[in-house]
Amino acid sequence: QVATSTVRILGMTCQSCVKSIEDRISNLKGIISMKVSLEQGSATVKYVPSVVCLQQVCHQIGDMGFEASIAE
């Protein structure tokens, strides 16, 4: 089973930030795809909930120095 959710990301300033986040999160087990939008300050994450949760994704992004939260 696959889920798609949006994560809000604060602190991104350039495409390099976007690429860094996409590269790191895409390597997590259970992540199918991730598309980060600098303009919208968010990311669309396609993932397998039984393998990885959005809290883990937000935590990983937080470790990179950005502020991440699950969009309502």
Rank of each mutant, 00 (worst) to 15 (best):
T4C: 15
I61E: 04
A3M: 14
G30T: 05
C14R: 00
S33H: 10
T4N: 05
H59D: 15
S69Y: 14
V45C: 05
I21L: 06
Y47K: 00
K35P: 01
I25E: 02
H59W: 12
E22C: 06
S33E: 10
V2E: 15
V45G: 02
L38D: 01
L10D: 09
R8T: 10
I32E: 02
S42G: 05
K29G: 08
S20L: 14
C53M: 08
C17S: 05
M34H: 00
R8G: 07
H59Y: 12
A3H: 12
V51T: 05
N27M: 14
I70K: 03
S69A: 08
T13P: 01
I61Y: 04
G30F: 08
K29P: 13
A3S: 13
V48W: 15
A71F: 10
S26G: 13
C14L: 03
G62W: 14
L38W: 06
H59T: 13
V45D: 03
C17Y: 05
P49W: 07
I25T: 03
G41R: 15
C53F: 06
Q15F: 10
V57C: 04
I32S: 00
V36D: 01
K35W: 07
V57F: 02
V48T: 08
G62A: 14
L28F: 05
V45M: 04
C17Q: 15
S69N: 07
G65P: 02
Q60V: 15
C17E: 14
I9F: 04
R8W: 14
Q56H: 13
V52Y: 00
A3W: 15
Q56P: 01
V7A: 00
K29N: 12
I21W: 03
F66P: 01
Q1Y: 06
E72D: 12
I9E: 03
E39A: 10
S69L: 09
E39N: 08
E67D: 10
R24Q: 11
D63K: 14
I25V: 09
Q1C: 15
I21N: 02
I25P: 00
S16Y: 06
T13Y: 15
V48P: 00
V48D: 15
Q60N: 09
I25W: 02
V57P: 01
L28R: 02
V7K: 01
V52C: 03
N27E: 11
Q56Y: 15
D63G: 08
I32Q: 01
E39F: 09
G11M: 04
C17I: 06
S20V: 10
K19E: 13
E67I: 12
A3Q: 10
A43L: 07
S33P: 00
M12S: 03
I21Y: 01
S20R: 15
P49C: 06
V18L: 05
I25K: 02
L54P: 06
I70V: 13
N27P: 09
